[in-house]
Every structure is written in structure tokens, then in C-alpha cells.
Amino acid sequence: MALMRYGTILAALVMGIVAIVMIVVAGGFPAPSTLGAPGPARLPTIYATLLAVLAGALILRSLFGAPEPGLSLKGSGRAMALTAGTAVCVYLWSMLDFLVLFIPATLIGVRLLGAGWIGAFIAAALMPAAVYGLFHLLLDVPFP
């Protein structure tokens, strides 16, 4: 429960800071050029102000309100590893051919998440090829 509370407070703090930054940035937007027009800053400022207020309310509720259900971190290491692996693949995609990159990446990804070697080899052989065939060959999407 404490983990959920701290997580919520941290998220609300980040949102509050982002909202304040948006209000400051919106302050630099030009004044309305058309008669009667609201100007580019009006709605973003209203939304960001409301977000800052509600983020504050969420912090107060987390500190003094009824406790929320607990937060489990079980398996989050695997999720983080998959996220990092995805980012590395996207970075390399511009440099390597799709199949050259994604066949080994799929093999590693599926194994990392606990599949057996045979299943991982089959997935690595089929999944990138199917996606490549559908998007690049059939639908003519030009890959980087």
C-alpha cells in the first residue's frame, strides 16, 4: 500500500511540474491575431491549471485519504528489460535490414520472457517474416 501511495504521489508531482511548465511556456505564445479569437494560450492554460490543481488534490488524497489497493513490482524487471530491448531495436532499425534485426531480436525477446528454445526459434522465424510480408511486401510500406 505504501508503494502505491509513493508511486501516486511521485506521478502527481511529475504531472504538477509538467502542468506548471506548460503554463509558463503558454505564457510566451503570441496574442490572438483575429478579432474575438481565444488565442493559442487560452485552452492550454486552462487545462494545465486544472491539471496542476487536480495533481495537488491527488497528493493530498494520497497522504490523508483512504489507502488504495497495493502495488506489486513482481516481474517488472522483465517489463523493463523488454522496454529497453524495444528501444535498442528501434534505434538499430534505421541502420539494419528489418529481418536481420528482428529475427534475432524476436528470438532473444521470446526467450527472455521464458519461452523454450524450440518455440523461440519458430517465433523468430515466423513473426518477423509475417510482419515483413504483410507490411512491406503486401501493403508496400517502405521500411527505413
Binding site: 524495444t86 532499425w93 528482428f102 525477446g109 513473426m127 510482419v131 507490411f135 501493403l139 527505413p144
Partner: peptide
């Protein structure tokens, strides 16, 4: 399908599907 295949499959489709929208990395 076990989660491992689903997760990797969803990521593959998502990356390529997103790219195919405007062809922008």
C-alpha cells in the same frame, strides 16, 4: 499463445504499424 509470444508479437506489430502510418521513425 503464451504471454512471451503475445508480448513480442504485439511489439513487432505496434512498431511496424506505427511506422507505416506516416513512415516516420
Amino acid at each position: 499463445l503464451p504471454n512471451s509470444y503475445l508480448a513480442v508479437g504485439i511489439i513487432l506489430l505496434s512498431l511496424v504499424g506505427t511506422y507505416s502510418f506516416r513512415n516516420l521513425m
